[in-house]
Design a protein around this nucleic acid. Structure first.
Lengths: 125, 125
DNA sequence: CCTACTGTATCGCAACAACGATACACTTCT
DNA sequence: AGAAGTGTATCGTTGTTGCGATACAGTAGG
């Protein structure tokens, strides 16, 4: 499950770990109420420092995916609960802004991006 | 024209400068063949180090907006030349796909993304 | 040619990010 | 109460980034 963690990648370890867990949770590989591996367990498994795993878990917590309980463990929340929060709109805006930034950088207008997005959403070209 | 350059912003000075110039070029405030302010001129105007302006110009050059001529100045290229490459559509698709990926990861549908994109394009909240 | 302009290259430093080491504090179970 | 698990807090080291200082090199006009 964590085969693709690569210390030499330019994307930080904690981000790789968080990303992997995000999809796992979103795709119900972990279900609500279930506990993630402990910080030390996962750290040992990945041959990584516990602090690095903590950093990943903290990100997931900020994003509303999990809850860390001191002394008890880290538990995944249910997705509906995650989605209810205003956090969701915030993140949508953030994603879209980044898209527009990157687009502008390449001289691609918002109008074009909307068009392309519609096409991709409809199942691609 | 460069009123909004802010040293205290988390986004780097050179990136703010480059961003401002990108839209200026895209909107024909500078036309093809015209020269940008010299590195030192702009640096003095913005009360910034010449190296910082250079960094901005180099980015614009990598992106194909301008050409730096040693000893002569920095000149804007014509946009049609930039846009003619099929590279453009490819990158648009790539950007949009990444957006959808990231969205899916957070449980955000394409429909929502389109909606948010329209809002942001219209000037944001 | 030579002066006054252009961009270029190479440093140095301060701030920050990523990661690790290690000690601390809480919970749960017996 | 105590043991064995859990997350937390605080450091230090290392690499990278943003920015500046300063010397180098090319170009163009008098």
């Amino acid at each position: 499950m964590f085969d693709d963690i690569d210390p030499r990648s330019p994307v930080p370890l904690y981000e790789q770990i968080a990303a992997r867990l995000r999809v796992a949770i979103a795709s119900s590989e972990y279900s609500a109420g279930e506990s993630l591996p402990s910080v030390r367990q996962l750290a040992t498994l990945l041959r990584v420092n516990p602090s690095t795993v903590v950093q990943a878990y903290r990100d997931l917590e900020r994003e509303g995916f999990v809850e860390m309980r001191h002394g008890a463990g880290t538990y995944v929340l249910d997705l509906p609960a995650i989605r209810r929060t205003g956090e969701r709109e915030r993140m949508t805006r953030e994603l879209v802004r980044r898209l527009m930034d990157d687009g502008a950088r390449l001289g691609i207008s918002a109008k074009e991006l909307i068009e392309a997005l519609k096409v991709e959403a409809a199942g691609g070209a």
